[in-house]
């Protein structure tokens, strides 16, 4: 088997953590850090006291610095049939009044929160604690997953700059890879249109035989032609489309005709296509949609939505790489793992 190389883009300097000062307007690093006095007294420092308080109307911004566990009833309903995430978001969004629950994750959570509030998080320790389960709500799970997947650096001071970098990276991938070829040709045509007009004036008498060039047009067979590439890709895109429509058909989040489900399907599709194009040796394999779905669900359901949306794509790349290596070297190596050939 060909020796597997890590794709170049994974080794890009963009992934490595470099020191950059966090933007002053970003309050994310503070989410788990130095809790405001009132909330700290109730949850992080002392044993949690069950306080029954009605959920406050969903604020437009996260005020409470400390994530609050969701009452078990909510957890159950989420697991059985997740309601539309808007509901989850408003349910789990930390409100100014603290809601604590002793029965759910009360053993895990203080440890988890204290680990998360360290300036530099010990990922080994975090992994150990997270093995016992991560409570729902307030985006704890999505933060922990991002850390464990190596998407966020352990040093919390670097998060804002890292996130900004990775988010623009994914946007850049999307802009580059998901563009309709006719759009590109149109752009190219604009620059060459004057040339062709000149040529028309010159030709007189016999009409010259036109050659099929290897430029950018739908009939081009040129290897580097974006159109040719597009038609080759369309098969994989159809496959992705078919599977995305069949992803968790029992969840309203992913299926149905609601515009919300449609937008989620669109996002899954984009992520899978970008991944397939960035990894020509792996491309798309049925089942990747199943790996992506829970990641996307958790990140999308993060109360701090802006924080989460772009993240999934790149995080997925990480998790797939992890899966790929894991499968390849540990599980399936003896059975010649041919459906993920290493051609890249």
């Amino acid at each position: 088997m060909v020796k597997k190389k890590v794709p170049d883009w994974l080794n890009s300097s963009l992934w490595s953590t470099t020191t950059a000062p966090p933007p002053p307007d970003d309050d994310r690093p503070q989410r788990y850090a130095a809790p405001k006095p009132v909330a700290a007294a109730a949850s992080a420092a002392e044993p949690p006291v069950p306080v029954v308080a009605p959920p406050a109307p969903a604020p437009t911004h996260v005020h409470a610095p400390v994530p609050v566990p969701v009452p078990p009833r909510d957890v159950v309903s989420v697991q059985q049939e997740p309601p539309k995430p808007q509901v989850i978001v408003s349910d789990t969004r930390p409100s100014n009044s603290d809601r604590n629950d002793d029965e759910n994750g009360s053993f895990v959570q203080p440890q988890l929160l204290s680990e998360l509030s360290k300036k530099v998080i010990n990922v080994r320790e975090l992994r150990r604690i997270a093995m016992q389960g991560i409570p729902d709500g307030a985006g704890i799970r999505s933060t922990v997953w991002k850390l464990l997947l190596g998407y966020l650096p352990p040093d919390r001071g670097l998060w804002p700059s890292e996130l900004a970098k990775k988010r623009s990276q994914y946007k850049h991938f999307k802009d580059d890879l998901l563009v309709n070829p006719s759009e590109i040709t149109r752009r190219l045509d604009k620059s060459t249109i004057y040339e062709s007009e000149e040529w028309k004036c010159e030709s007189s008498g016999f009409l010259s035989r036109s050659e099929i060039t290897h430029d950018e047009h739908p009939l081009s067979l040129g290897k580097s032609s974006i159109w040719n590439q597009f038609f080759q890709d369309s098969e994989i895109m159809e496959q992705i489309d078919r599977d995305v429509k069949r992803t968790h058909p029992d969840m309203h989040f992913f299926s149905g005709d609601s515009s919300f489900a449609k937008s989620n399907q669109e996002a899954l599709k984009n992520i899978l296509i970008v991944f397939a194009k960035l990894n020509p040796g792996i491309r798309y394999v049925q089942g990747m949609n199943e790996i992506l779905a829970p990641l996307y669900y958790v990140f999308k359901s993060d109360p701090d939505e802006e924080f989460s949306l772009m993240v999934t794509g790149v995080c997925f790349s990480h998790s797939i790489s992890v899966c790929h290596w894991f499968c390849k070297f540990l599980l399936l190596a003896p059975f010649s793992f041919e459906f993920l050939p290493s051609k890249d």
């Binding site: 992803t247 058909p249 199943e290």
Partner: peptide, 27 residues
Amino acid sequence: DSGVGKTSLMNQYVNKKFSNQYKATIG
């Protein structure tokens, strides 16, 4: 080919059931 209804046919025959909720078969 993918999506032609292989899983659906098998389930219709064995379980006499049809569902719109089949997932893509892996392996």
